[in-house]
């Protein structure tokens, strides 16, 4: 049988630990771990992030992995009995409390580029998960009510955009009893109804901007895998998720996005990446969770999962998704 030296012309290098300069394809023996390793190509993983000041699920979120905002929602299920107005701001290392929301609510629509510029719109509130229409704007310190959505709705709206230009879609009309297809566009001052989704749903994910967005999954009872793409004018159905789910979180753009967590109906840990054409499963959260917060203005290479309902209670744990240029893998022989 050919050995490594016979094939490559040199022996496998032995070093204590991992090399500083990693080159894809390198093979070496780690004498510290007593393991044969090789350097693979880019891949993403979730690592633990800072713990939030309190448990939070069903809140709104905005920003990136290192400048993130989580607000409203509840501390635990049921959300009607545990709703909160708290805001938590993340700097990539630790969380601090921000200004309280003016309208207490959960399962809202939300978007914004950072932890100092966010919009919260619509959502559900106790008693009875009644639908809200209020829109509030965050400046890094406090929330200010700015305008109402044209059609009140809750139980999870998809969203995309930044503080001055956003989009919300879907949701559930309560006290009515229907999922909605309605899409409304925010210009920084007021809402305008634009073209509907093709498939009504509550609790979809969303990402992108007002001219290029995604509506991902959601709940049609049962959960759906349907994905739609917005081109600034209308929605077109594109390829489905691999795993149907609702109340998940997302990060990225309409051509390169990450979708993670959710409910199917149990808490999901799966992470899928969208490349503009199709979804591929790329890795799992350490802990499955639904009604979690994301990083709408993040990327598919750098994302944040915050809080959520975690098999089964609300959690204060966060996880950070990062894609590295190279990946050290251990060779196992069985």
């Amino acid at each position: 049988m050919a050995d490594y030296k016979g094939i490559k012309g040199f022996k496998v290098t032995s070093i204590a630990g991992d090399p500083t300069n990693k080159v894809v394809g390198d093979v070496y023996y780690d004498t510290t771990a007593n393991a044969l390793k090789f350097v693979g190509g880019p891949s993403g993983t979730w690592a633990s992030g800072g713990t939030m000041p309190d448990t939070k699920m069903g809140g709104g979120s905005a920003g990136t992995q290192t400048a993130n905002l989580q607000f409203g929602g509840g501390t635990n299920a049921p959300l009607n009995g545990n709703q909160v107005d708290t805001t938590f701001s993340y700097d990539g290392t630790s969380w601090t409390a921000g200004g309280a929301m003016g309208t207490i609510r959960f399962a809202m629509g939300s978007f914004g580029a950072s932890n100092t510029a966010a919009i919260a719109v619509a959502g559900s509130a106790s008693p009875g998960s009644s639908s809200k229409a209020e829109t509030e704007s965050y400046n890094g310190t406090s929330w200010t009510e700015v305008a109402d959505l044209l059609t009140a709705r809750g139980e999870g709206l998809g969203a995309a955009g930044i503080q001055g230009a956003g989009l919300v879609f879907g949701g559930y009309d309560r006290p009515g009893t229907t999922n909605v297809t309605l899409t409304e566009q925010w210009n920084g001052t007021s809402w305008t109804e634009v073209n509907d989704l093709n498939t009504a749903r509550q609790g979809p994910g969303g990402c992108g901007i007002t001219t290029a967005a995604l509506c991902i999954g959601g709940d049609l009872t049962p959960q759906t895998a349907i994905t739609e793409q917005w081109n600034g004018t209308s929605w077109t159905e594109v390829n489905d998720l691999n795993k149907a789910r609702n109340h998940a979180a997302s990060s990225g753009t309409s051509t390169l996005a990450l979708f993670f967590g959710g409910q199917a109906p149990g808490a999901c840990a799966e992470t899928e990446q969208w490349n503009g054409t199709s979804w591929t499963e790329v890795g799992d959260l350490s802990t499955g969770r639904y009604l979690l917060g994301g990083s709408l203005a993040g990327t598919a290479l750098s994302a944040l999962a915050a809080g959520g309902g975690s098999s089964p209670a609300g959690t204060d744990a966060t996880e950070e998704w990062t894609v590295s240029d190279t990946t050290v893998k251990t060779v196992t022989v069985s």
């Binding site: 993983t45 690592a47 802990t287 975690s310």
Partner: peptide, 17 residues
């Protein structure tokens, strides 16, 4: 919280909470 499990950890062994 931060550092409890790292990206390196996640690449080196299976972990679920």
């Amino acid at each position: 919280g931060k550092g409890f499990f790292t990206h390196e950890d996640r690449r080196q062994f299976y972990l679920s909470g």
